[in-house]
Design a protein around this nucleic acid. Structure first.
Lengths: 341, 341
DNA sequence: CTGAAAGCGCTTACAG
DNA sequence: CTGAAAGCGCTTACAG
């Protein structure tokens, strides 16, 4: 049924070796046969079989995108963006792409190296790992280069990429302080996500630099979940303590917080400002619109793929452990900024 | 580096043929050697190489999930759910999974059959195609079985799956008519998506059955886009014609419609009811919450994968052209239903 | 510039 | 119940 390299070779009057060479862009091929081969291949509709190529070749690189359950939230399209970023880089750089949606549970059934072996994975980008996932250690010890999104781990073949979470959250906090708010709290994500810790650090730094102090209950944890965030915020408000700003480690949690504020008849931003993180679509359409930090996940995906490409070619300085991708603090109505539509 | 079948065979004192047989679940293997092989394989951390398997085997099936750009909206996690549905079915049924995020443009560079050849795709599930995509004809004429999500096309090896869009939209429309609304309009999606036509049909049927008639401008098209929907709704309201309900072909458009209503100081649901489609996360959290139709995309993904499995095994009746997956009309505040939280 | 040949890591009739 | 051998569709030293 399918047309194979042999068919093309025969029709072009050459060997399969030659056809292979022109398809792999070898330089020493006569212009004449190159043209002929392409012509015949196009007419026959030939496409090289990928399984055969990966089996016989050392140079066909496949990069895997490993998405752990941490990112599979129903709430946003974030992980879809990562997929597109990585895919597009691979597509335009002659690398194979393979997606592996895993879970902490699945990680116990198959080690990272086993996964890489079975699929001939040359390098991987990994997103959504908790800091206590079994994969972490396996990745550090693995030979295969991996680029971690949002999580720094040790390992000679490992580089991580993320926005500067500390700086970003600090920037956001400073903004609300500048607006005259002096009793901010933070709604943080699950502690086993490294970004939670970094964002908390940025929050604390801004508070500290401003000469303010934080009560013990100023940091709440709501696992990046909208309902948990709402519940936590309701409790906080019910306790009667003074709160005039909430820095949230995700937009979903910011939504939950706003619901709780509304229920308590607190006006946003007049009585209490709110900032999220991620810049998911709804932040532009909620009422009020939500200030947040844009991460541009598709770009991060692309950069990550490029990094594994560089890692594969030894083009990453050995002391490079982490790359910061650009972020942007976007102010909207929830921090008192009303852009004219 | 990697451990291969030969290593296991040697360590277990058998041939690679035997190892292959136990790993493929052949029945005629002595209990003793089966155990031994598994034991050795586990100790060595052996996993069969997939490229080698797909190259040499007729029975290793790989199913591709082809996601076209139509579904890559930033607004929701819908396509992520499809991915998980298909992936999980494959994972638990010994089939290989491969994701191909394509675009109408990419479809011109590589035919459907070429894609299937190069990746040894035995069957595919396809989502997000426009009715004028080049893939449509190629799929109809292709030998490889495909399950289309949300789009019926001809073809002997083709089955489609979707919710009953006509019935669903009819049901929603009837509900708002029952609430006493008599000037409904529809905010429809891009006409090149089949679901748009079906949902419109359901809407029209409900109107017709109720003995009402529709003006020419009762159906608007906003390409599933929130901003376009808002703009279209603003225009409609500005025109001064009477509107007391808006049936939308997607939740995103429902959001846009609600924004326009709010800007015109029309209360939802008192002055105008709104219905969306998809049940994306925000519908539960917008204010008011949005009535909508739940599709359960992850389930559809799973059913679709199962269908290609059946297609592959000739277990689908030849006259079966389409499967309806269950949907559920969920009433919320935007149609006057206030569930106690 | 191009061929002949070995090899990638499996699977599967074919024998026994 | 298990081996020996051919084959899946490519790539790539090795010659020439």
């Amino acid at each position: 049924m399918a047309v194979k390299i042999y068919d093309v070779a025969k029709a072009a009057g050459v060997t399969s070796s030659t056809v292979s060479r022109v398809f792999n862009g070898y330089p020493d091929i006569s212009e004449h046969t190159r043209k002929k081969v392409y012509e015949v291949a196009a007419k026959l509709g030939y496409t090289p079989n990928i399984a055969a190529r990966t089996l016989s070749s050392k140079s066909l690189k496949t990069v895997a995108l490993i998405l752990n359950d941490l990112v599979a939230s129903r709430f946003d399209g974030v992980s879809m963006q990562t997929i597109l970023g990585v895919y597009n880089y691979c597509e335009t750089h002659a690398m194979q792409f393979v997606l592996y949606p895993t879970t902490t549970k699945l990680q116990h059934e198959k080690t990272f190296d086993q996964f890489c072996m079975e699929r001939n994975v040359a390098g991987a980008v990994v997103q959504g790992l908790h800091i206590d996932d079994p994969y972490i250690q396996q990745i550090s010890e693995s030979q295969t280069p991996v680029v971690m999104i949002d999580l720094e781990i040790p390992g000679a073949n490992t580089v991580s990429i993320s926005v500067d979470n500390v700086a970003a959250e600090k920037e956001a906090t400073q903004a609300i302080l500048r607006h005259g708010k002096s009793h901010p709290v933070m709604m943080n994500g699950i502690p086993s996500a490294q970004v939670s810790n970094l964002r908390e650090k940025g929050f604390r730094e801004a508070i500290h630099d401003a000469g303010l102090s934080l009560s013990d209950d100023a940091i709440m944890y709501a696992d990046f979940d909208i309902d948990k965030a709402e519940a936590a915020m309701r409790n906080a408000l019910a306790s009667g303590r003074e709160i005039d700003a909430v820095i949230c480690a995700s937009d979903a949690m910011a939504m939950g917080v706003m619901t709780a504020l509304k229920a308590a008849h607190r006006r946003v931003p007049e009585d209490c400002e709110v900032v999220g993180f991620d810049n998911i679509a709804i932040t532009e359409y909620s009422q009020p619109t939500i200030s947040t930090i844009d991460q541009h996940m598709e770009k991060i995906g692309g950069m990550a793929a490029q990094l594994v490409d560089k890692l594969l070619n030894g083009k990453v300085a050995p002391n490079m452990r982490h790359i910061f991708s650009p972020h942007k603090f976007i102010q909207r109505e929830s921090t008192g900024v009303y852009p004219d539509k």
